[in-house]
């Protein structure tokens, strides 16, 4: 079966791509995720924005089933997480690169693709071209620059054409021109029915998302388009909205 990007998965109808109910994750005294209820419709790009330590990575790990919720539950495509089989339909770009230093870009990609059941070379070649690493396919990950390793990691997250894609700070270290290309591709994926959940701690990418979830200290401060959030807070930029929305209600 071909798993090219052009073939959209059937629309998931009314089932949310991701649904969290009363989600709590504590590490001892730290409340990394502190009561999150969230339902995300498919076919859109969601930005999870928040400063370092606000719980973005923990939230994504809960959604992928890699962390166990202290309280509450998560469903992805209607399936309660953790679910091993559903992982075949999920793409996950970790915040660390998760690449094997000794292996070449191609070997890294081929390994993860094989685990997802992708054995054709064509989809591998396609994602490698997308992240502009086709000419470095033989280079060991160790010898790639930090930004190139991020790109390789992104290629690994997309190679099996997943329906729900979690990207944890995907554009860190990627130069601006390529960033623009990434976002254009994210948009194509969303148009084809994929759901993207992209975390970031830089606000200038927010306008490219269909919807934002502002996170602070493990709680959702607000949700909406960038414009809506700015209006609601009455501030000209999102940084301001962050500060304003984070204040206790007088």
């Amino acid at each position: 079966m071909s798993r090219g990007f052009a073939i959209p998965e059937p629309a998931t109808g009314t089932t949310p791509a991701m649904e969290a109910v009363g989600l709590v994750k504590r590490f001892g005294a730290i409340h990394a995720v502190d009561g999150i209820d969230l339902s995300l419709a498919p076919g859109r790009i969601y930005g999870v924005l928040g400063p370092n330590g606000s719980g973005k990575t923990t939230l994504i790990r809960l959604m992928t089933g890699l962390a166990r919720a202290t309280e509450g539950s998560v469903r992805v495509l209607g399936v309660p997480m953790p679910s091993r089989t559903l992982l075949a339909r999920i793409g996950y770009m970790t915040q660390g690169d998760g690449t094997y230093a000794e292996l070449s870009a191609w070997e890294n990609l081929r390994f993860l693709a094989a685990l997802y059941g992708v054995r054709d070379a064509a989809p591998l070649q396609r994602v490698l071209e997308l992240v502009e690493l086709a000419d470095r396919r033989g280079t060991p990950a160790l010898e790639l620059s930090g930004g190139m390793r991020r790109r390789l990691s992104l290629a690994c997250a997309l190679v099996h054409d997943p329906a729900v894609i979690f990207l944890d700070e995907p554009t860190v270290g990627v130069d601006p021109a390529l960033r623009v290309q990434f976002w254009a591709h994210f948009r194509r994926l969303a148009d084809a029915g994929r759901t993207l959940i992209v975390s970031s701690h830089v606000m200038d990418e927010a306008d490219r998302c269909d919807e934002l979830v502002l996170l602070r200290a493990g709680r959702v401060l607000g949700r909406g388009t960038a414009a809506e959030l700015r209006d609601r807070a009455g501030t000209p930029d999102l940084e301001g909205a962050f500060l304003r929305l984070g204040e206790p209600v007088p």
Binding site: L66, A101, L112, L115
Partner: peptide, 14 residues
């Protein structure tokens, strides 16, 4: 430690 196990476990491998 290097984060590849996390990446590995995010695939459907048993």
């Amino acid at each position: 430690v290097g984060g590849t196990l996390e990446r590995l476990l995010a695939t459907p491998i048993r």
